[in-house]
């Protein structure tokens, strides 16, 4: 029998979620002591590690220095063992470069770069296990890492992938759904102001459906932001207990 039934008549998805439900998100901040900031985040079975260095002086070519704000440098990579099919992923392949660029754009919109002119902030994200929504997981992990590094941001940037099946938007797609012929869209949001940091989509979707889909994505992002907020508060609490404040 061809294809999977992505949404059953009873309204359940392949993994048992309903259309608007997110996967279980678990995260820890400050997992990596050498870095200025770090975070580990699991969104369902997609697992990402984000590490932040900076702000520090410009390295490498000085020509890239920005005189009014900090330069954000992002690097995205996938672990060899991150997918079911094990293959070597050379650094800087087209897909990673594109993803790096997307991350850079996202964080340029969120980090208050004007506070650190002529300096550089490095964000490294590695996907340890991939099960759909890589971009969103990276953004969410990196947000926590940036917060951990104490770099001021306008707001959390939260990202979520949504898809469109049988006239219904599905939130936070897993790999089986992404590869099951769904037109998917990734959106990064600054939830408090409702500004969109990045919106990315390569699938074909009718204009009429775009609005519903973006709305669903925004709702999903707000859901993510709540969870991230909880993680941050938890982390601060633990921190304050340790320092005895």
């Amino acid at each position: 029998m061809a294809g999977l039934e992505l949404l059953s008549d009873q309204g359940y998805r392949l993994d048992g979620r309903k259309a608007t439900e997110l996967r279980k998100v678990q995260a820890r901040m400050g997992v990596f002591a050498q870095a200025d900031g770090s975070a580990y985040l699991e969104q369902g079975n997609t697992k990402a590690l984000a590490v932040v260095y900076g702000p520090h002086e410009m390295r490498g070519s000085r020509g890239r220095t920005l005189h009014d704000r900090a330069l954000i440098n992002c690097q995205y990579s996938m672990a060899t063992f991150s997918t079911a099919e094990r293959k070597r992923r050379p650094h800087g392949d087209r897909k990673s470069t594109e993803m790096s660029l997307h991350l850079k754009q996202t964080f340029e919109a969120a980090v208050m770069t004007q506070l650190y002119p002529r300096s550089q902030i490095d964000i490294y994200v590695k996907i340890l296990q991939s099960d759909g929504g890589n971009y969103s997981t990276c953004v969410n992990a990196a947000t926590l890492a940036v917060i951990d590094a104490g770099i001021p941001m306008r707001d959390y940037v939260c990202a979520c992938t949504v898809g469109f099946v049988d006239e219904t938007p599905l939130a936070d797609l897993c790999y089986a759904e992404e590869s099951g012929g769904v037109s998917s869209l990734a959106l990064a949001l600054l939830p408090r102001g409702g500004q969109i940091a990045l919106l990315q989509m390569d699938a074909r979707l009718h204009q009429d459906h775009l609005e519903t889909l973006i709305e669903a994505a925004m709702t999903a992002c707000k859901g993510v932001s709540k969870v991230l907020d909880e993680v941050v508060r938890q982390h601060l609490q633990e921190g304050s207990v340790l320092t005895g404040e």
């Binding site: 993994d15 048992g16 979620r17 369902g44 079975n45 079911a84 897993c174 089986a176």
Partner: peptide
């Protein structure tokens, strides 16, 4: 043969 790990939520 390929190990596919899928989430399965119980409600």
């Amino acid at each position: 043969v390929m190990k596919i790990v899928r989430e399965h939520y119980l409600r």
